[in-house]
């Protein structure tokens, strides 16, 4: 464990909690892409099946359970409890255009052809594009609530911090995982446009609205 991975995990946890609290307290999921949340639930489910097969540490197990639990709770709030506030018209990204190519890529490019490994690889590739429906929805509505921008900032920051974690692990442990690194780079690059708007607008107290 290193400072980048720990702050990355905490940033990820913060994002998940911010979103869950935003929906729960405002009793509304307006502006939130339910499709992205479904993709995140799939990401955690396919990645954390090793909860059933191996124990790494209390931290590892508890964080995984929190992530999976919050992901499903968020999907439940969006599609069941507060479904009346779900903005389906603007959440129109065709997720099959993500899942099919990612599934194919996971079968073609992986570290080994074992089921858990293929699922882990699928999860890594899917996570790198899972935010696209959310970013697409914001581009369609032309704006985002400030709390939603804080959620996205923490979510984007987490994988950026993981990139530093991988530099650290390569330098000090000689460890690197090309699949995770390339997917993490793609994932972080997808946030660059948002990061620019967040820093130049939201941090100056303005509302995030498009076109910039």
């Amino acid at each position: 464990m290193n400072v980048f991975r720990l702050t990355g995990d905490l940033s990820h946890l913060a994002a998940i909690i911010i979103l869950l609290l935003k929906i729960w307290k405002s009793r509304s999921c307006a502006g939130i892409s339910g499709k992205s949340q479904i993709l995140f639930a799939i990401v955690f489910t396919t990645r954390y099946l090793d909860l059933l097969t191996s124990f790494i540490s209390l931290y590892n197990t508890s964080m995984k359970l929190i992530y999976v639990g919050c992901a499903y709770a968020t999907v439940y709030l969006i599609y069941v409890k507060f479904r009346a506030t779900y903005d389906g018209n603007h959440d129109s990204f065709r997720v099959e255009f993500l899942i099919v190519p990612v599934g194919g890529l996971a079968v073609l490019i992986n570290h080994s052809f074992a089921p858990l490994e293929i699922l882990w690889t699928f999860s890594i590739y899917l996570e790198s594009v899972a935010i696209l429906p959310q970013l697409f929805m914001i581009s369609k509505t032309g704006e985002a609530e400030t709390i939603t921008t804080h959620y996205l900032f923490c979510l984007g920051l987490y994988r950026a911090l993981y990139l530093f974690n991988w530099v650290w692990r390569f330098y000090f442990e000689g460890f690197f995982d090309m699949i995770a690194i390339v997917a993490g780079l793609v994932q972080t690059v997808l946030y660059c446009d948002f990061f620019y708007l967040y820093v130049t607008k939201v941090l100056k107290g303005k509302k995030l609205s498009l076109p910039a």
Binding site: H12, S54, S57, K64, N165, D177
Partner: peptide, 10 residues
């Protein structure tokens, strides 16, 4: 293995 040590990441 190299892969296993990746698995300790979330």
């Amino acid at each position: 293995s190299l892969r296993d040590s990746a698995k300790d990441e979330l």
